[in-house]
Computed example of a mutant assay.
Amino acid sequence: MVAQDYTVDLNKPLVFQVGHLGERYQEWVHQPIVSKEGPRFFSNGFIEFLTRTKWYAVPLIWLPVVCWCFSRSLQMGHTITELSYMAVFGMFIWTLLEYSLHRFLFHIKTESYWANTAHYLLHGCHHKHPMDGLRLVFPPAATAILLFPFWNLVKMFATPSTTPGLFGGGLLGYVIYDCTHYYLHHGQPSSNPSKHLKTYHLNHHFRIQNKGFGITSSFWDIMFGTLPPSLRKKSI
């Protein structure tokens, strides 16, 4: 069956189906299905289990690592004030990374079978099923794998004593990002700035999907000109 005639069966595991859509994948994946029940990804039960993560697993697993990183910089002679600067700078760098990954990797255009499949696993599934509460945060196993290259990247630009503090700040930024992302989908904020952020993010999902790439802030969207036109006057 050619891609133009292929139809995805939502009652079967999706991951190895979506690649067959070819150039039609981008249109399909950006037509959201609003349901709190997530689809099945794989027929294998163990692999399927690894794709589902409770939101609170993120702070439970990674905040102790953040504390360990901060303690290492303190043990190597830095003061609390110096550590605070490292943490804030690390979190700031995370916000740029958050924006860049979302804009340039998560929203990359794909057409081939394996590129579509990889994109669906990485981010496409979130746009197709935006209310799937078990696939809103990044699986810890995948995060652990990615932490190694990021640690080595920080080491290239920092001293041995500042590397843990900067890395811990970036990791703390990630934890805040993932928890915020979950809250924007499933929380009911009644006041700003969280109320604005929820409107801002849902606008990205349901109205203008090629704008509004920031999650924890619209700062980088303002800086790089990707702020949705209708929200420019309300940005933070």
Score class of each variant (00 low, 15 high):
Val15Cys: 09
Gln17Trp: 04
Gln17Asp: 12
Trp28Glu: 05
His30Gln: 07
Gln31Asp: 14
Pro32Glu: 09
Gly38Leu: 04
Phe42Arg: 02
Gly45Lys: 13
Gly45Arg: 10
Phe46Arg: 10
Phe46Ile: 14
Glu48Trp: 05
Glu48Ala: 07
Glu48Tyr: 09
Phe49Ala: 05
Thr51Glu: 11
Thr51Ala: 08
Arg52Trp: 12
Lys54Met: 10
Trp55Pro: 06
Trp55Met: 14
Ala57Trp: 11
Val58Phe: 10
Leu60Asp: 05
Leu63Trp: 10
Phe70Lys: 03
Arg72Met: 12
Arg72Trp: 02
Ser73Trp: 02
Leu74Tyr: 00
Gln75Arg: 07
His78Phe: 11
His78Tyr: 10
Thr79Gly: 13
Thr79Ser: 14
Tyr85Lys: 08
Tyr85Cys: 09
Met86Phe: 12
Ile93Pro: 05
Trp94Phe: 15
Leu96Glu: 01
Ser100Asn: 04
His102Tyr: 05
Arg103Tyr: 07
Phe104Asp: 06
His107Arg: 02
His107Ile: 01
Lys109Pro: 00
Tyr113Gln: 06
Asn116Leu: 10
Ala118Val: 13
Leu121Thr: 07
His126Arg: 07
His127Thr: 04
Lys128Pro: 04
His129Ser: 01
Pro130Met: 08
Pro130Ser: 00
Gly133Pro: 00
Leu134Thr: 12
Leu134Pro: 04
Arg135Ser: 07
Leu136Glu: 02
Phe138Gly: 00
Ala142Thr: 02
Leu146Trp: 04
Lys155Asn: 07
Ala158Leu: 00
Ala158Pro: 02
Ala158Gln: 03
